[in-house]
Design a protein around this nucleic acid. Structure first.
Length: 508
DNA sequence: TTCCGACAGTGGGGTCGCAAT
DNA sequence: ATTGCGACCCCACTATCGGAA
């Protein structure tokens, strides 16, 4: 199959806003792709690469060669070139990578170039990714989408699952099983503003469990072999020896566990996320880092214990298996309650101890991997500040033409100036985007730029955020974590905004 | 007919590893 | 030694579609 066929299908998918129409376009193409190229076609049309990543991003794609006039490139040829590019990533040569990219982009037409750029930068923007592709595969292979979903849960890689569906239908999909040593797509959580609201949503007794501010891990053990994977299914076994040893010390030797790894201080309080993140990402000098930044692990779910798959069991039963297989010190602290007061008190205590919040879990739900089901609901405390808009950046995609991304500052009362604390684009409705674009253009001052519009510091906006962290990027040495807009404060003048010292008081 | 679950899009701060400068 | 880039860790929120109620 030719790459141009995919580029055309992608364009048709982008042109129709209806999901059912997108599914029809994708299924039509999947119906005529050969078995050798099915995996490539599924990957490309759901915004992924068979190679996963190849060390090429936005910056490497600025200067493209002249396109061809006639489309002749096949999926197999493109895939082979991407393989060669990947082999030059990391320890390879950037010059070699540049030459190969020139060869790749010189071999395709303008429309294919555009498709490849969006694919390689991870910004396909056709309104269809895994969720829509699952439905399209189900349609093309004439199988229930639930079967595709189930197989994806267990395999974690849609191109492989989809190719199996097209090849062998339900029969082949049923061959996917939980395999120790191969990661499963982790279950995700929705969020709620309070434990009370979360309990309401679940509607009955629920587990309320500490939420740690660390890195999600999935640990597999078969005999004396242990592997550890992240949320995106990357293997980090070598970076977390403490975790490997903890799992090897268990009496049970056929296990798949879900948990969180984090760095604790000697007094037992958690280190800031930045410390945990840096430690987990470090591949060099792990043995000396162990001494200075030791990692702890807390598990909260069991997908397999003693050779038995537990994914389809209710959460409460999985937790019994977890407690049976693990010492209490390795299990995330939790209570089970239907009483809002009791849940709120447990939440407040977790936060007092420095943790991120809690996750409220239904006792009934199976392990719904990879979906943000209503079975898990996270609750975190929320801070707010009244800050001043210092500048704004033009949006892209559906936000093109709107000033979208706000630069936020706190008041320095000594000098009457404002100290930038970060940016946000979250929490804005289309109506608010329209309103603020007008206001910002009225307040514009300073050097004109086609990216950033600088403003007279007059507009006050109420910002919600999760916390304040150390920053080497911003002048105050602090940045907001997960900042989002709540509302504008036309009743407040900039001189009444929150001050730098008020922000500093929130630093851990 | 209205409601609501699931999805895609639009970006945020921080850290590490690596090649090039 | 420093810089730029890619990859990945954490992530919130709104608009939209289409099936459920």
């Amino acid at each position: 199959m030719l790459l141009i066929d995919l580029a055309r299908t992608s364009a048709a998918v982008a042109a129709d806003s209806a999901r059912l129409a997108k599914i029809r376009h994708l299924a039509e193409l999947l119906g005529r792709v050969g078995p050798d190229e099915a995996e490539i076609a599924i990957a490309y049309l759901s915004g992924e690469l068979p190679q996963r990543q190849i060390g090429v991003g936005f910056r490497s794609l600025r200067d493209l060669p002249e396109p061809r006039q006639v489309a002749t490139a096949t999926l197999t040829q493109i895939d082979a070139l991407l393989d060669r590019i990947k082999s030059q990533s990391g320890a390879g040569s950037q010059a070699a990578r540049r030459d190969l990219l020139a060869e790749l982009f010189g071999a395709v037409t303008r429309q294919e170039q555009s498709f490849l750029v969006r694919l390689l930068t991870g910004e396909l923007r056709q309104g269809a990714l895994d969720g829509v592709m699952i439905e399209a595969l189900a349609k093309a292979a004439e199988v229930p989408s639930a079967e595709v979903r189930r197989a994806l849960t267990l395999r974690g890689w849609l191109p492989a699952v989809g190719a199996a569906a097209l090849r062998g239908g339900v029969g082949e999909l049923r061959d996917f099983h939980l395999e120790v040593g191969r990661p499963v797509a982790p279950m995700l959580a929705q969020s709620a503003p309070s434990v009370t609201a979360a309990l309401e949503k679940i509607g009955g007794p629920a587990a309320v469990e500490w939420k740690f501010d660390g890195v999600r891990v999935q640990a597999h053990r078969k005999g004396e072999d242990v592997s550890v994977f992240t949320r995106t299914l990357d293997d980090i076994t070598a970076q977390v020896p403490e975790l490997v040893e903890a799992v090897l010390a268990l009496p049970e030797n056929d296990l798949v566990l879900d948990g969180e790894v984090l760095a604790l201080r000697p007094d037992g309080r958690p280190e800031p996320f930045q410390v945990t993140s840096g430690r987990v990402a470090s591949k060099t000098d792990v043995s000396s880092l162990r001494a200075s930044v030791p990692l702890s692990v807390f598990f909260f779910d069991a997908l397999r214990v003693g050779g038995a798959d537990l994914l389809d069991l209710p959460a409460a039963e999985r937790h019994v298996a977890l407690r049976t297989a693990l010492p209490a010190g390795l299990v995330a602290p939790r209570i089970v309650t239907a009483e809002p007061e009791e849940g709120e008190e447990f939440f407040a205590d977790a936060v007092r101890r420095g943790h991120e919040g809690v996750v409220v879990k239904s006792p009934l739900t199976p392990y719904a991997a990879g979906r943000r089901g209503a079975g898990w609901i996270k609750v975190k405390p929320r801070h707010t500040l009244d800050l001043v808009v210092l500048a704004a950046e033009w949006g892209s995609g559906r936000r093109r033409g709107w000033l979208s991304n706000l630069h936020l500052g706190a008041l320095d009362p000594e000098t009457g100036t404002f100290v930038m604390l970060g940016k946000t684009f979250k929490g804005l409705t289309d109506e608010l985007l329209t309103w603020q674009t007008e206001q910002f253009l009225r307040l514009a001052q300073g050097p004109a730029d086609d990216w950033v519009v600088h403003l007279k510091p007059e507009l006050v906006v109420e910002i919600a955020f999760d916390g304040v962290q150390r920053s080497s990027r911003y002048p105050g040495g602090m940045a907001l974590r997960f900042a989002r807009v709540l509302r504008y404060r036309p009743d407040k003048r900039a001189e009444e905004a929150d001050t730098v010292s008020a922000v500093r008081a929130l630093m851990p």
